[in-house]
Design a protein around this nucleic acid. Sequence first.
DNA 1: GTAAAGGATGAAACGCGTTTCAGAACAAGT
DNA 2: ACTTGTTCTGAAACGCGTTTCATCCTTTAC
Lengths: 315, 315
Amino acid sequence: MGNIHDIARMAGVSAATVSRVLNNYPYVKEEKRKAVLEAAERLRYVKNINAVHLSLGKTKIIGVILPFVSHPYFGVILSGIASAAEKSDYKLMITQSNYQVSQEIEALDMLKRKQVDGVIIVSRECPVDIVKDYSEYGQIVLCEALADPGLSSVFVDQYKAFQAALSFLKKKGHQKVGYTLLRTEGKSSLARKQAYEEQYGKAKRGWVFNQALTIDDGIRIAGEWAGLSERPEAMVITNDFVAAGFLLQCRRLGFSVPEDAALIGFDNHPIAGALGITTIELPLHLLGETAFQQVISPNNSHEEVPFRLIERDSV
Amino acid sequence: MGNIHDIARMAGVSAATVSRVLNNYPYVKEEKRKAVLEAAERLRYVKNINAVHLSLGKTKIIGVILPFVSHPYFGVILSGIASAAEKSDYKLMITQSNYQVSQEIEALDMLKRKQVDGVIIVSRECPVDIVKDYSEYGQIVLCEALADPGLSSVFVDQYKAFQAALSFLKKKGHQKVGYTLLRTEGKSSLARKQAYEEQYGKAKRGWVFNQALTIDDGIRIAGEWAGLSERPEAMVITNDFVAAGFLLQCRRLGFSVPEDAALIGFDNHPIAGALGITTIELPLHLLGETAFQQVISPNNSHEEVPFRLIERDSV
DNA sequence: GTAAAGGATGAAACGCGTTTCAGAACAAGT
DNA sequence: ACTTGTTCTGAAACGCGTTTCATCCTTTAC
């Protein structure tokens, strides 16, 4: 296959000229340009991208850290990142972290090693301070509300979104409201808790459910809900998948939605449409695209993306 | 930050020795080893991975081509690939192809450029012959039935699985059966068609539905189904999401499952459990893990993974 | 006709870690 | 004392594309 010097020899020019031709620089005589192109063709030349990366000191690769690739929530964000990346001719290196800090750190280390030009952290376990230490090596974008001037972020205001859901329930006359969280710690859970307490005061024991991510979690939580001596009559649920599981299990247990339990989910995934679940639509694809634009931008920024309540039949 | 030569100078040894220490080679005097480690520490040295890649001629990166990252079917396979990759200390470069041949080719080109050591094609549009041309540059694994000795493959036997679904329906007394496909062309669609015709003869006009991938497709197809003058009373459906959409839309239109339409899906995604959909379980996570093992193996192989019928309430 | 302004081109340095090869240093065996 | 076998080490080559700098060749301008 050969390298750039073989082409140079064959075309009777220098390696510098070959490089110029291959990268479409001006100032190369037409005949030499042709000779180079022909030699490249004949040698079936292919650039060794690693040499390019080494030489340029950058790679046009962005690292993406996310806990689970198989969950639609993260999948849709990733999909948004991927479409934007494709348009800008970047490649994506993904790390499925399972919320393991060690995994997250290893992915961030790729920034140090110059393996990636920037990193998008879709969701994390690792403390922000540690993340910040890596910002000197390249752009880092977090998909969460963040004021830090040293990092970029793109987010839905969890507080406002949760508040909107609660207000909607209140408007519909619900006084006994519970909710679910993905993880107890974490900023967004805190924001939800705060929004809740402002509206309804401290939540009753057993009205806040944890580990809510998948359909199966929804099923499990519906069981827990049904077993409560005093049940909330409305639930604000992490995402539409959990809501779907909850709704279906409720029905199976002989309850009806929204009579026994009013539900409001998040995301507006097609499953919510199919099941008539009222939900707060989050523009996850857009969020991914925005994150990508930020990660290739030299400047830090913090962008909020909007949400929208979609009324269906579960409230 | 400095490079290996700076360390060498600071530690009073040669770059070769530094490299030996950093890569844990034997035959380095303990005192020199220490001096190197200390210098590396003091300089906050970090390897430039691009130089390593250039030097070694390989990267421990595997490319993954898949049409949509946000669909659970592909997401689960990707997740399987990702967990296996992590265990073997490989990184993943993903390309969301949208079934665009140009995208697929571009991803394969990474193999030529030595950007990745191997490629896993989860699903493709591009002709196999073109794919084969790239096999000289590294391992390629396809997730589909394939006999080609120049490539590896891992697959569920679509023919047998579809046949199992059809036999089950027949056993339950269904004579009027329709089915859905993702794409009309493609080997797996052909296998399905063949299995169908052997069991039921040529399908009635309108009983084969295309473009079935998502919940929304299921909803759409249920509408088409309902509008048929002669309706099949049982459907074999591409995957559980489509089946879910179909089932929910059927109910909404006033039909009942399985009385008016018996359904059998594929994958055994939690959504099937939640909705009581009878399905053919496909070990997609395992399939991904297997694909990864194959792509890092120097030998080609063809591995079949098993499926299993899970009986629930939709038939 | 000559100076100034481009246009065109190659040598060499740069980015940086790995590995081979030749040789030095030292322990063990006779 | 001398051979043999290990253990260590460093110089140099290798993988390979990009870019700067100096230089030579043409035009255009006056």
